[in-house]
Computed example of a mutant assay.
Amino acid sequence: MMLAKSMLLAASLLLMTGCKLELPLLSGSSISGPLTLETVTFERAGGPQCPDVAGTTPENIRCASLRLIYPKIVAAGTPAAAAAMNQYIQAQLLEYSDAEGKPPATADELASMFVADYNDVPEAVGLWEMVREVEVSFASEHLATLAIRESGYIGGAHPFSGQRYAVFDVNTGQQLTLKDLLVAGYEEGLNKAGEQAFRRERGLGANTSLEEAGFWFANGMFKVNTNVGVSGNGLVFNFNPYEVAPYALGPTEFTVGYDAINALIPDGSLLAALAR
Score class of each variant (00 low, 15 high):
G229K: 02
A11H: 08
Y165G: 00
R202D: 08
S140M: 03
K20T: 14
Y186K: 01
A206W: 00
N225W: 05
E22H: 14
D117G: 14
P122Q: 11
L182R: 03
T255K: 04
P241I: 08
R67N: 05
E123V: 14
Q174R: 13
R67D: 07
A82Q: 08
F239H: 05
T39P: 00
A275I: 05
A75Y: 07
T208Y: 02
H158F: 15
D180W: 02
R276H: 10
N60V: 13
I61M: 13
E38H: 13
F138G: 04
P79E: 12
V40C: 08
E253P: 04
N191F: 11
N240W: 06
L94E: 03
F222I: 11
A213S: 11
N240E: 10
V228E: 02
K72R: 13
S27W: 11
E135M: 08
I148K: 07
T252I: 11
G268V: 02
V183S: 09
T172D: 05
A91S: 14
G268I: 01
V170H: 00
F254D: 03
L274G: 12
A82K: 06
L210E: 01
A107P: 08
A139P: 04
L274A: 10
L13T: 02
Y118Q: 09
E43L: 05
N240H: 02
M2F: 07
E187W: 10
A157L: 14
G173S: 07
I31C: 09
L270Y: 03
L26G: 03
L190M: 08
A45C: 08
A4I: 15
D120L: 10
W216T: 02
E150H: 07
R149N: 12
N60K: 12
R67H: 06
S12Q: 06
I31D: 03
Y70M: 06
L93Q: 07
F222E: 07
E22G: 07
L37P: 00
M1S: 11
I61R: 10
F168A: 03
A166F: 02
L274R: 01
S27L: 15
A107V: 02
N60E: 06
G185E: 04
L8H: 07
N171D: 12
V167P: 01
A99H: 06
V244N: 07
V40E: 10
L14T: 13
V131E: 12
G250T: 08
R132W: 07
L178A: 00
L235A: 02
D108N: 12
A184V: 12
S231K: 01
L66W: 01
V230Q: 06
